[in-house]
């Protein structure tokens, strides 16, 4: 029987409490198993299509307002702050393409996934955590259904699908913010602004951002689900699950950002 995957309890099986290092490796092993299980079960029928749609809608809806606001303001502020430096070289005409590239390559994916890590990650962690604590996950288990499939797979897939979409949405809203700022200070038409900013964007930029956003989305989903699904008993466990979903999620997103910048840098010459 596949009990290690059901119970986070490989730690509890030890006669005496393991040391810090051992514990870290055991957790790592546990996480790997969790991820493997996602790939093993995520793509096998029967599918939970309805639940997946509900989760996608939920994740998108939950972060939309905040993302719109942040994206728009970032667009304005970034443009405003970049203008003086460019003006020094008499190069304010580069402003649109600078903003476009900065938003698409880095700002949009990072902003979106950090906000989602806060909003989505914590709510996944808390929701699954409280289901674990109140034995709802066990109840699914004993009624011969697969809670992993219904709860984890759908949420991870949903955030992996939704975050890239939200990322491009953020980039777009950010461009609108930039346009607002530019049109206040310069004599450019909206059409010319978008033309200038899109001109410099390459296929590689779009690919890199999409891949990054997919990775970030997957990370947010998997971390939130892992923390919630393996939450310890008691109400305290729920809070801890939500909290560590956010902290670990954000931490991993930054690491992944650094690595992917290095990686995609190899293709830019």
């Amino acid at each position: 029987m596949d009990n290690k995957a059901e119970n986070p309890a490989i730690l509890q099986k030890q006669a005496k409490p393991p040391g810090k290092i051992t514990r870290m490796f055991l957790t790592l092993y546990d996480v790997c198993q969790f991820v493997t299980r996602f790939f093993k079960e995520g793509f096998l029928p029967p599918y939970e299509g309805k639940e997946l749609m509900r989760q996608c809608y939920d994740i998108g809806y939950r972060s939309l307002a905040l993302i719109s606001l942040t994206g728009f303001i970032t667009g304005i502020v970034f443009t405003k702050q970049s203008r003086p430096s460019l003006a020094e070289f008499g190069a304010t005409s580069w402003l649109p393409s600078l903003v476009g590239i900065a938003l698409l390559r880095t700002l949009a994916p990072l902003l979106t996934s950090l906000i989602a890590a806060g909003k989505v990650g914590s709510s996944i962690g808390a929701e699954l955590g409280s289901m674990r604590v109140t034995e709802q996950i066990d109840a699914m288990e004993v009624s011969a259904t697969n809670p992993f499939k219904f709860l984890v797979t759908t949420r991870v897939l949903a955030s992996t699908i939704t975050i890239p979409i939200l990322t491009f949405y953020t980039a777009m809203v950010g461009m609108l913010g930039a346009l607002l700022n530019v049109s206040l200070f310069e004599d450019t038409s909206a059409r010319a602004f978008f033309q200038a900013s899109l001109e410099q964007i390459t296929f590689l930029d779009i690919t890199a951002s999409t891949v990054k956003a997919i990775i970030f989305g997957f990370t947010i989903g998997i971390v939130g689900c892992y923390q919630g699904y393996n939450s310890s008993k008691g109400t305290e466990g729920v809070g801890k699950a939500a909290n560590s979903a956010v902290v670990i999620g954000m931490f991993l997103i930054f690491i992944e950002e650094v690595v992917s910048v290095q990686f995609f840098g190899l293709f830019r010459t």
Partner: peptide, 12 residues
């Protein structure tokens, strides 16, 4: 095998 939980464990 039907299992009725101590706290009912309804999906809330």
């Amino acid at each position: 095998v039907g299992f009725s939980f101590q706290n009912s464990a309804l999906y809330d």
